[in-house]
């Protein structure tokens, strides 16, 4: 085990900024990419939903005299 305590771990021998800078950005990119795709999927479903609804309403309007 290289680290005695957490603060030393985060200091990372003085290079903490660089090491954590790169890992945090990597994590952010991955999470960002996953969210982007799921957002794309949700907008797709929302569009599907919108197209579907009006047709049922129209049918109701027509039937009432």
């Amino acid at each position: 085990m290289n680290w005695e305590n957490w603060s030393e771990f985060f200091a990372m021998g003085g290079y903490g900024f660089y090491v954590w800078g790169s890992y945090v950005v990597s994590f952010v990119c991955i999470v960002g990419e996953v969210m982007l795709v799921s957002k794309r999927r949700r907008t797709l479903q929302k569009q599907r939903g919108l197209i579907h609804e009006p047709t049922t309403k129209e049918i109701e309007n027509e039937t009432t005299p």
Partner: peptide, 24 residues
């Protein structure tokens, strides 16, 4: 990468970026 690999004699801890840089 962080807990098992030893500290690098020349680069100290900075080399640990290798674990994301090279795979990427």
């Amino acid at each position: 990468g962080f807990f098992v690999a030893p500290t690098d004699f020349q680069q100290g801890e900075a080399y640990r970026i290798i674990f994301i840089h090279v795979p990427a």
